[in-house]
Measured scan of single mutants.
Amino acid sequence: DSWHDTVDGIELELHGADEELLKLAKELLKRGVSEEEVRRIIEELLK
């Protein structure tokens, strides 16, 4: 799946992010949310 590559990229960027955020990112990508949107959501949550 192409979203796996996206998640791997996000995981590299979010090496400090907790497991729950990564699960959320994967779930959003699986549901068709764009990579940009996922990054934006996670950045908001990390604030």
Rank of each mutant, 00 (worst) to 15 (best):
G9K: 14
E35V: 15
E37C: 04
L24G: 00
V7T: 12
K26S: 07
V33H: 14
L46Y: 04
L28D: 00
K23A: 13
E44P: 02
K30R: 11
V33M: 09
E35F: 13
A25P: 00
R39I: 08
D8I: 14
R39A: 05
I10D: 08
L12A: 04
G16P: 06
A25I: 15
D8T: 14
E44W: 11
E19A: 14
R40D: 03
S34R: 05
E11Y: 04
L14G: 04
G9F: 15
I42C: 02
T6W: 13
E13L: 12
L29M: 04
E35P: 15
L12C: 04
L45K: 04
R39Y: 11
E36F: 06
T6Q: 13
E11H: 12
L24H: 04
W3I: 12
I42K: 00
V38F: 01
E35C: 12
E44M: 06
L28Q: 01
E19N: 07
K47H: 10
E36L: 09
G16K: 05
L45V: 04
V38T: 02
W3S: 14
S2D: 12
E35H: 15
A25F: 04
E13I: 11
R40Q: 09
S2H: 10
I10S: 09
R31G: 14
L29Q: 02
H15V: 14
E11L: 15
D18Q: 09
D18C: 03
A25C: 02
E27R: 05
E19D: 13
L46Q: 06
K26G: 05
T6C: 04
E11N: 14
E19C: 04
H4N: 12
K26A: 10
L12H: 09
W3K: 07
A25W: 04
S34I: 02
D1T: 10
E27D: 10
E11Q: 12
E44L: 08
D1S: 14
L21G: 01
H15L: 15
R31T: 14
G16C: 02
E13Y: 01
V7D: 10
E36K: 08
E11D: 14
L21W: 05
A17G: 10
L14Y: 09
G32D: 01
S2Y: 11
L46W: 06
R40S: 08
E36V: 08
A25V: 12
V7Y: 15
D8R: 02
R31N: 15
L24A: 02
V7G: 10
E20A: 14
R31L: 15
R39L: 09
G9Q: 06
E20L: 07
A17Y: 14
I42G: 00
L12P: 05
E13M: 10
A25S: 03
L14Q: 04
E11F: 13
G16F: 10
R40C: 04
E20M: 09
R40Y: 07
R39E: 03
G32N: 01
R40K: 12
V33Q: 05
S2R: 07
E27H: 04
R31A: 15
E19P: 10
V33A: 05
I42M: 03
V38Q: 00
L21C: 03
A25E: 03
R31P: 02
L22V: 09
R31Y: 12
E20S: 11
H4P: 13
R31I: 12
L24E: 01
L22W: 09
I41G: 00
L21M: 11
G9E: 13
H4S: 10
E13P: 06
E27C: 08
L29W: 02
L46D: 01
D1A: 12
E37I: 08
E44R: 04
K23C: 03
R40A: 11
K26N: 09
R39K: 10
T6D: 12
L46A: 04
K47M: 14
R40W: 06
G32Y: 01
K26D: 08
R40E: 05
I42Y: 01
E20Q: 10
L46H: 04
R39V: 09
S34W: 02
E13Q: 09
S2P: 13
L24C: 06
W3T: 11
I10E: 03
K47A: 12
S2I: 12
E19T: 09
S2V: 10
A17R: 08
K47E: 08
A17P: 04
V33T: 05
E37M: 05
L46T: 05
D5Y: 03
V38M: 02
L22Y: 09
G16W: 13
D1K: 02
I10R: 03
T6M: 13
K30F: 10
L45S: 03
D1W: 00
T6I: 15
L21A: 03
L46N: 03
L21T: 05
H4T: 09
V7E: 10
L24Y: 12
L12F: 14
I41P: 00
H15A: 13
S2W: 15
E35G: 10
E27I: 06
H4C: 07
R39C: 02
V38H: 00
R31C: 11
L28N: 00
E20P: 07
K26T: 06
D5W: 05
L28R: 00
E37T: 06
H4E: 13
